[in-house]
């Protein structure tokens, strides 16, 4: 096998460039649109959305609140007003439906930074890596919640690259670009997908909302798989694919059930055989035995 073969070349040849990049394009469009909506106000005086990803007000009626930061505030002993609570409930309901880590791949501004770092890392063929456990993020998540509980302040918000970069773009960066640069360098040089795939407690929190979410990527055509490995190379959470793609023998259904799948759809893009598609988590049985052996959902969450 040629190591430096870039994923997606075959898909582009078979499906055409647009079809082989459509979910990536849709994702970038969504990320930039959301950021653009936030920036319309401060840049052009068109106030459709006010605030930032921590809490916002759309068209002066729709409150949206990041449930993770609100949970920290609650643990810090503060009872928020109704606006923040209802905003958080709306967000929770939405991500329970579409999968929590959709936030990571479709909304979070850091995603573009880490994707860029990953792209550069692959282009330069950097392979050496610090060993990081992908469970680290749950430890950090727990630590941030405990810190809020014991100090009574939102400690994580002092260093959180996610809210800091988004707030920086809208309200003024200050030195926050240093934190963004640190995340970039970490993903570029220290370890593959270090931030989003191993460390970020925001993603870890949102993954908990995805344990039962109905919108999932399915490897329905997995018997077509020719082991080109492209999907594993582009997936930001490579372990989530294996059970669905290669688990037919073990009676595992074709739905990617892991809560850490970000529903980015990049595997759908780069697969020349069209193995993957977006679908629901229902009807997750193997083609061979037609049994309704539901693969227990979300068990990979801590893997």
């Amino acid at each position: 096998m040629i190591r430096d073969r870039r994923p997606g070349v075959e898909a582009v040849a078979v499906k055409g460039w647009l079809a082989a990049n459509k979910w990536l394009l849709a994702r970038r469009f969504t990320q930039l649109s959301i950021l653009g909506l936030f920036l319309l106000g401060p840049w052009f005086g068109i106030w459709i959305v006010k605030g930032n990803l921590n809490a916002s007000l759309t068209l002066d009626v729709l409150p949206l609140t990041d449930p993770y930061v609100l949970l920290q505030s609650l643990l810090a002993g503060q009872m928020p007003e109704l606006a923040a609570i209802s905003g958080a409930l709306i967000i929770v309901a939405f991500y329970l439906l579409v999968g929590g880590r959709v936030y990571c791949s479709w909304v979070c501004p850091v995603n573009m930074v880490t994707d860029a770092a990953h792209w550069l890392r692959e282009r330069l063929g950097i392979t050496g890596a610090a060993r990081l456990s992908s469970t680290t993020r749950y430890w950090i998540l727990a630590a941030t919640l405990l810190l809020a509980l014991f100090t009574g302040t939102l400690v994580w918000e002092i260093v959180n690259p996610v809210s800091m970069s988004h707030r920086g773009l809208i309200f003024g960066m200050g030195l926050a670009w240093l934190v963004v640069l640190a995340v970039f360098l970490m993903d570029f040089l220290v370890s593959r997908r270090a931030w989003c795939g191993h460390l970020c407690p925001v993603g870890a929190f949102y993954s908990l909302l995805a344990l039962r979410s109905p919108l999932r990527v399915r490897a329905d055509q997995r018997e077509q798989c020719d082991d080109c490995m492209d999907c594993f190379l582009v997936c930001p959470e490579p372990r989530v694919i294996r059970p669905a793609l290669k688990g037919a023998d073990k009676g595992i259904g074709p739905v990617i059930t892991s809560a850490n799948c970000t529903n980015c759809g990049r595997c759908i893009d780069v697969c020349a055989k069209d193995v993957f598609r977006f679908g629901s988590r229902f009807g997750n049985w193997t083609d061979t035995d037609e049994q309704t052996t539901q693969h227990s959902p979300g068990v990979e969450v801590l893997r």
Binding site: N52, A55, S73, A76, A84, G152, L154, R167, I170
Partner: peptide, 10 residues
């Protein structure tokens, strides 16, 4: 205040 403010800028 540091426990209640969620830094949204509204």
């Amino acid at each position: 205040f540091l426990g209640a403010c969620i830094r949204c800028g509204l």
